[in-house]
Simulated assay, not measured.
Amino acid sequence: MSAQSAAVGRGITLAYERSGAGGTPLVLIAGLGQQLHEWPEPLCALLVGRGYEVIRFDNRDVGGSTHAGFPPPRPIQLLRGRWHSEQYELDDLAADTVGLLDALELDSAHLVGMSMGAMIAQTVAARYPARVRSLTSIMSTTGAARIGRPAWSTWRLMMSRPARTRDDHIDAAVRMYRHIGSHGYPFEETAVRARAALAWDRDPHPAPGVGRQLAGIMKSGDRTRQLRAVTAPTLVLHGDRDRMVAPTGGAATAAAIPNARLHTLPGMGHDLPTGVHSSLADLLHDHLSAPVRSTDAP
């Protein structure tokens, strides 16, 4: 596969990749600061093998997609909720996603998001219900206060000085994923280093974009009421070792979305280790191929 780009409206262009042409459309939405390749190739191959056309993309402000020109907020501005006049929200990232569906001429698709990507997917499902065949929210939350918050040790890592070189960026990724990763599975340092190297090569000095994305999450606030409008069949997946988004976030998400199912993955943290790929592909396929329940929207 090679990355392509699509204009999705409002001056935003998104870089994307698709595989499994002719399959049922399945859009994978990456998390905070993540690029499309954070969805592991082996997992994507398993999904293609189950009959899906897998579409991955870079959200705005990362990778090969449009980057905003305004400065990211400083930590004190984040704490005080003081935003630049051009600061976007999750609603805007959801509109980007719908714009990508338009550009690819897809009336609707299954949406699977992880972390911030799941927040985007949730927002699409709430605001554009006709475009969403099903929703899967992985390791995410509702934005409610004191719910699904990072551990203090995770906040300290997040607030570290941004990497200035490629090697520093790779080392920082290893430190972060050694901390927030799936402690119930072996740490895959080689894979973490490879993904971090590719991320830097595609988008050197990514810290400003990550800061703007984080501000977008925080500016969006508590979305619990919005999530009550979701009608798509919804599966919520969360690991029990997550130090980035505490498991309370998954429980709150499932409680907020009508008829959502919550499934806990033992040993999983805030990543997708090789050991969960097979079970995750099975869980997704079972959910995506299930008949629509009578309480769901047609």
Score class of each variant (00 low, 15 high):
His37Ile: 11
Gly20Thr: 07
Val292Trp: 12
Arg156Asn: 02
His263Gln: 15
Asp96Lys: 06
Ile147Lys: 10
Arg131Cys: 12
Val276Asn: 04
Thr165Ser: 13
Thr123Ser: 13
Arg18Thr: 15
His179Cys: 00
Leu93Asn: 09
Ala172Thr: 04
Leu235His: 10
Arg241Ala: 15
Leu14Arg: 01
Arg18Tyr: 10
Arg74Asp: 11
Gly209Phe: 06
Pro25His: 09
Thr253Ala: 11
Leu106Tyr: 05
Pro233Phe: 04
Gln226Cys: 07
Gly249Gln: 01
Thr190Val: 11
Leu198Trp: 13
Leu78Thr: 07
Gly64Asp: 08
Thr295Gly: 02
Ala15Leu: 08
Ala125Ile: 05
Ser140Arg: 07
Leu26Trp: 00
Met218Cys: 12
Arg212Trp: 07
Ala6Met: 05
His270Gly: 04
Ile12Lys: 08
Arg228Thr: 15
Asp107Ala: 14
Thr66Phe: 08
Val236His: 05
Glu188Asp: 15
Thr295Val: 15
Ser220Ile: 02
Ile76Met: 10
Ala229Asp: 12
Arg193Asp: 02
Ala126Tyr: 10
Ala109Thr: 00
Ala207Asp: 12
Arg50Lys: 12
Gln122Ala: 01
Ser279Leu: 11
Arg225Phe: 10
Val210Cys: 02
Gly64Phe: 01
Thr264Asp: 04
Trp155Thr: 00
Ser294Arg: 14
Asp282His: 13
Ala256Tyr: 02
Glu41Ile: 11
Arg82Thr: 13
Gly113Asn: 10
Gln4Lys: 15
Trp200Pro: 11
Ala30Met: 14
Ala21Asn: 10
Leu157Arg: 15
Gly181Arg: 09
Met244Tyr: 13
His285Ile: 04
Asp201Phe: 01
Phe70Asp: 13
Ile180Cys: 06
His285Val: 00
Gly275Thr: 06
Asp171His: 13
Ala45Asn: 03
Thr234Gly: 07
Val112Tyr: 03
Leu280Trp: 04
Asp91Gln: 13
Ser5Thr: 14
Ala297Phe: 07
Val54Ile: 08
Pro204Asn: 03
Leu90Ala: 03
Ser137Val: 13
Ala207Asn: 07
Ala94Thr: 03
Gly148Ser: 06
Thr142Val: 01
Gln77Phe: 12
Ser65Leu: 03
Asp92Phe: 07
Ala103Phe: 04
Gly99Tyr: 03
Ala297Met: 12
Ile55Cys: 06
Val210Met: 14
Arg225His: 12
Asp96Arg: 05
Gly209Gln: 00
Ala229Glu: 14
Thr224Leu: 02
Pro73Gln: 06
Leu101Tyr: 04
Ala121Ser: 08
Ala207Ile: 05
Trp83Leu: 01
Trp200Glu: 07
Asp58Asn: 01
Arg225Cys: 00
His238Gln: 13
Gly249Phe: 03
Thr165Lys: 04
Arg223Met: 10
Gly221Cys: 08
Gly181Cys: 09
Gly51Ala: 06
Gly113Pro: 11
Thr234Gln: 08
Arg50Leu: 11
Asp107Ser: 14
Arg146Phe: 12
Ala197His: 09
Val276Ile: 15
Arg195Trp: 12
Val174Phe: 01
Ser5His: 14
Trp83Met: 07
Pro273Gly: 04
Leu280Gln: 04
Arg82Gln: 13
